[in-house]
Write a protein that binds this DNA or RNA. Sequence first.
RNA 1: CGGGGCGUAGCUCAGCUUGGUAGAGCGCCUGGUUUGGGACCAGGAGGCCGCAGGUUCGAAUCCUGUCGCCCCGACCA
Length: 512
Amino acid sequence: MATPRTAISPTREENYPEWYQQVIRAADLAENSPVRGCMVIKPWGYAIWENIQRSLDARFKATGHRNAYFPLFIPLSFLEKEAEHVEGFAKECAVVTHHRLIPGEHGGLVPDPDARLDEPLIVRPTSETIIGAMFAKWVQSYRDLPLLINQWANVVRWEMRTRIFLRTAEFLWQEGHTAHATADEAMAETMQMLDVYADFARTEMALPVLTGRKSPGERFPGAVETFCIEAMMQDRKALQAGTSHFLGQNFARASDIQFLDEHGQRVHAWTTSWGVSTRLIGGLIMAHADDDGLVLPPRLAPAHVVILPVAFKAENPQHVYDWCHALAADLRRVQYGGRPVEVEVDERDIRGGEKSWSWVRRGCPIRLEIGPRDIAQDAVFMGRRDRPASEKVAVPRAEFIDRVAGILEEIQSAIAQRALAFREEHTVRIDSAEDFRAFFTPPEAPDGAPTPIHGGFALAHWSGDAEVERRLNEDLGVTIRCIPPGGGDDEPGTCPFSGRPSPKRVVWAKSY
RNA sequence: CGGGGCGUAGCUCAGCUUGGUAGAGCGCCUGGUUUGGGACCAGGAGGCCGCAGGUUCGAAUCCUGUCGCCCCGACCA
């Protein structure tokens, strides 16, 4: 019975923001919590994060970095040390002012006025300053460099408007912090980590990303240069999925990170920082999920294969279960993406259709329905998440075990291709102000309805004029997402807005 | 932080205009019939109607305030 019904309602086309939230719920990834702006990441969602962590952490270690941990609290005076940094983060800091509660006059508990902290502490929005303070102690000589540190942590940014996974008041991330003897070395590190992110996104997340430099207006507060990976979501908006910053000597001066070089000169170190966050999960959802729920790239899926025993009418149900568990054991001996194939056997006592759909919604790459008929033929009945849910095929058991890693890689590659094709379809070169405006002007929508899906990535010339950038942001809500590396693949031209000469095209889009 | 919308059962929502004992569908529990696909029958559990004040004999309903969520904007990973 081919049901036109989708598992997620509304569909992407009908109401994209609402669809996004429904996918998160249907896939059991996370929920809003009683704490304003803060989410609870549920086991299925957290397992995806753990896979992201494992995969990135291996890449960080392979490039010589070591993990460490720095305090959640940062003395207020530390934040004040770097002028631009203050400006960037002061507006959204949670501040700790007391260290004790006492009974209040009207019941409940209140901060004890006698327990006020001499110096307030802020909850870290990022850790440049506290890590800088430690680097200042650890770096004495050029022989101590480079210093290559990463931290997995939570941070807090008191955002006005939150969206689960994409922008929450508290989020999980990693922040790499490094110190180097020369500018060149620090810049090389910045670019290396940008490449690590890009490779991770493409290889593990099946997420095509553009890399490039941020315009001055979009730079990290305090950075000399910010580089980013940018991905297109299915509503054609851009998501900044990771950033890598060349901090020059700004933070070294602020935190007094100095060393004696080989000539005995006392000089400031050159530092970098780079990070990705649980926002990546939001990107994963918006890039790959469909109207039936989440679609997970196999490399990051908490379970690669779910086995659904169909045992209700078997003469010997236990035989079906045993057969399924034996199959699971054999599958777990296969390696995929650097880890054993992960298999779940779903023995929940609910109807088969419902059980099957629950795994569709959660994005499990391969579903195997196995009943007496399959067992009699020594076969499995396979559904793939990159194909329609009704499209299922019988595969001999031995062949499936043989091919499972290859099928997973096919799925990985299929969703990467689909995402890439989508981005290319909605990326256009634009050479006139009128075309640009038309491209980014949404169709009419009824009152209260979300803005219909429109736009995409516009490749247009830009002379470097900040005023043009500011005005387009104001008029159309469009920003420069990144300035592609090198000369780009384009000849110099003319900015369609100012008429000034432009060295190359930059990527414009609406963004999250 | 500005504009708009919404908070009633786990979920989706009705009831509110015109105040008078809290509703539906789905989900959940029990029993039965079912089962290669998002079942059916019967019975059942579950709500201080976001929270706090006010008006009233009486408030889910009217008024004020507040908190939260969603959309659009400004700001940001």
